[in-house]
Design a protein around this nucleic acid. Sequence first.
RNA 1: UGGGGCGUAGCCAAGCGGUAAGGCAGCGGGUUUUGAUCCCGUCAUGCGAAGGUUCGAAUCCUUCCGCCCCAGCCA
Length: 566
Amino acid sequence: MTEITENGSTKVEKPSHFIQNILRKDLDEGKVETIVTRFPPEPNGYLHIGHAKSICLNFGVAKQFGGVCNLRFDDTNPEKESDEYVESIKRDVSWLGFEWHEEIRFTSDYFDQLHDWALELIKAGKAYVCDLSPDQAREYRGTLTEPGKNSPNRDRSVAENTELFAKMRAGELAEGSCSLRAKIDMAAPNINLRDPVIYRIKKVRHHHTGDKWCIYPSYDFAHGQSDAIEGVTHSICTLEFEDHRPLYEWFIANLSVPATPKQYEFARLNLNYTVTSKRKLRQLVDEQHVDGWDDPRMPTISGMRRRGYTAQSLRNFCDRIGVTRSDSVVDVGMLEYCVRDDLDKNAPRAMCVLRPLKVTLTNYPEDKIERLRAPGHPNRDDLAERELPFSQTLFIDVEDFREEANKKYKRLVLGKRVRLRNAYVIEADEAVKNDAGEVVEVKARIIENTIGEDPEDGVKPKGVIHWVSAAENIECDVRLYDRLFNEESPGAGGSDFLQAINPDSLQVLSGAKAEVSLGEAKPESAYQFEREGYFCLDSHYSRDGALVFNRTIGLRDSWAKISQQN
RNA sequence: UGGGGCGUAGCCAAGCGGUAAGGCAGCGGGUUUUGAUCCCGUCAUGCGAAGGUUCGAAUCCUUCCGCCCCAGCCA
């Protein structure tokens, strides 16, 4: 049931989901010749893990069935949109590993056509300019259980509507003073059909069309027709748009569009211990609870990238969670599994001591340095070996030494032995303490002839710990991240989601000691710091001679459970 | 109390009338110079509930219960 992907991470072979079933059926029955989908983000924020699901779905099925997928910016509301977001979205989609068909599309590229179609509706007596203010319109709309009332302007003549719409377009009417509405049914049980607004006045400069327009089409009026223009066959969106489908179909049926795209809905992704709403993510950025949209703790694609998550792991995650119509909350542990799975298979190994404790080898010459060789990966010989300088003084992690411990502790203990990863077995003789009683140095001895061999006296070490030479290493900062929220569902039950922020989501360690080969690390490229976790160089904070590593994710840690039990 | 959806294990999710796949998490064990990886085993007499149809129901019918979405000139 499982197969291995090109780069080795574990991919599960899954039965097809309902979207794939629909596409296969439409292809088989000849309803469509080529699948055309589209990913239609509004450029009003950065993409997050939920968008990744949509991207993988839209681009994924198009590729699977030999079709194409467009990248279209749904930019009908200039008040919230900007080029910064356009650029970040292009970067994120590319990084995720997908290629959009031909050039980038913008809904705003179709504003002329959309305007013509609005005129077409007016001429057919199917749209009218309504003078109701937003507040009045709300009253006229009725409620969930009561029908709405017709606008006093509902029966304006075609001529009058044409003239008023022209004035709207010419900027002669004030924002909010009127709108163009589709004439459908104010008593419809589906509120979206109660004469929805299709054009509104916004005297705002548009990031893509500049000052050409002061009226902008609504999402409902733009989306389906844009799909039709592009020849999109299957317009896949999330569940909250289900109630809009009758409206989507109404425009397609009542306008001279070149194609008849169909809308299908799937459940959006929810992840526990995470927020995936642009509003909340924006708030975290604006109020500086995080360093920006690409803060490594953010569930944005750019944040995860900077954190060290790989595109492959995100794609695998999206494959594993499936595509259905039922609301669900995926355990963030599933995401973490996918990240570890990919990184384990592909990240070169290295050693870095996070909290250094000096070890002096009393039987090792002071001026001697051995150049040991270590594999780049325990089960991959295609990854380059590295050189480890070994010297009289070393650093090990403070957590890896105890003066005394029970049998479960498999690290260095006074009077006992431990294996230094890829090097000698050593035995600890003495703990040197400062005035506060803290261990500041350990005096130990190497056991001769133990590189790649067990000790000749038959006394095997209890465990293996990592180390770095004190003579040659790279001092660096390490940033340890934990989940951004302490609650499974931040903001649940009407509480303030900011109250759920984990105050310890970032811990900065300075003075960590990295092995010299890490001097060649490139930003965002993954390493496993053995026994610690996966790390990558931070793309913002790192400088030549002042390296900063982000912990992407820790190794699975069964010791944590054992040590807590005792 | 209008309309539209959805309920299969702690989580995700197959199943579409023939007797509950798979993954994550968990638990138990094995290998191991990473307490990692890897490997093996275990984990729903049960499919929101109750009736009914049937030789046989998670699948069909009825009723009920729960959860989600919709009253922006947002998308």
